[in-house]
Design a protein around this nucleic acid. Structure first.
Lengths: 182, 182
DNA sequence: GAGGACATGTAACGGGTTACATGATTTG
DNA sequence: CAAATCATGTAACCCGTTACATGTCCTC
């Protein structure tokens, strides 16, 4: 049971999903490919934390729909209350900024502009998600119980939005700092 | 030549350093242990990107001081101007927030408070670094050439400060959002 | 002489990426 | 019938973490 396993349990605790859907849905939370996910699902199923039923579909290929078991939910509950490890950020840009003085000013500028563009496109994606989740909150907001399941998702998207805004701010500030050096 | 290799070249392009010093200095930029670094240094030395001389010390154990070669500098220059891959952030907190509804409110609160504390201590460390580098800028600021080598470092520390401030802001906002649910 | 900082390595294991492999179904 | 999306798996390789291993020098 590594972090990714708990991540899969996390998603399954809100919805039953197939391996394919898990691969899509985990993307904003953790980087992982399907080749990592399918074997983990099999091992977690053998350990009794999840179970699946084969869903026969006529419009699409058949799939395995995984659900969390009582044992899995227990395991997840214990893990959630455990203190979170410090985050690990791996960003090539750190090194490339550090040795900016080696590159021509136009190249340095392009590096920062490209990153700013990337962050802006991410920001847009998350803003859309945020709106969708704010609607959910409004609809269900009055009843505390239903609100709860969407609350974490709402917090998270909000976090991504703040992070992206901070990154964009940095890139734009750095580009300004770069100007007089030209 | 993976990203970490280029990171080591980056540090060596500013200063000659031992494996031990590289291990310390790379920490704010990239997570890596000495067991990853020493083998890489050996392979890069064999490829001719770096060279070392044995420094005999009387007050401390002897060390190998690595320097970047002309070939290494060439390699690094090409890499720096290459577009940066999108950053990879792995943070357990994402999953733990997502399934916050599974945990008791006090536990949820503690999770966010602990993260805020961590970010605040990081912020302090970086603010100290920032001040040290701003002094450097003031001293050397007038001559563009010398400024250049410290400029990237200055940008980077600034980025870390902004990131930490954004994370703290998030935690405090989330804690407020949590309150009425109590 | 014990503990801590300095210094350099190796080995085993687990996690993550890329590529290989296959196949159903829909849409243009 | 070709391309795109849905769907599930395996294998090889690289990267990263933890533990093992050794040794110097200084300070308390």
């Amino acid at each position: 049971m590594n972090t990714l396993s708990y991540g899969l349990l996390t998603l399954l605790s809100a919805n039953s999903l197939s391996g394919y859907e898990l691969t899509q849905n985990i993307k904003p939370l953790w980087r992982a490919g399907h080749s990592q996910i399918y074997p983990l699902l099999m091992s977690m199923e053998q350990q009794g934390y999840i179970s699946y039923q084969l869903i026969e579909q006529s419009d699409k290929p058949d799939k395995k729909e995984y659900s969390i078991t009582e044992a899995g939910l227990e395991q997840l509950r214990r893990w959630v209350e455990t203190p979170a490890e410090p985050p690990v950020l791996r960003d090539e840009l750190h090194f490339k900024l550090y040795s900016l003085w080696l590159s021509k000013p136009e190249e340095a500028k392009e590096l920062l502009q490209k990153r700013a563009e990337f962050c802006k496109s991410e920001l847009e994606r998350y803003k859309v998600l945020l709106k969708a989740n704010e609607v959910l909150r409004d609809e269900r907001g009055e009843t505390r119980e239903l609100k709860a399941t969407t609350f974490g998702r709402y917090l998270l998207i909000r976090k991504r939005v703040l992070d992206m805004e901070s990154s964009i701010q940095f890139c734009e500030w750095a580009l300004e700092e770069l100007e007089p050096a030209k």
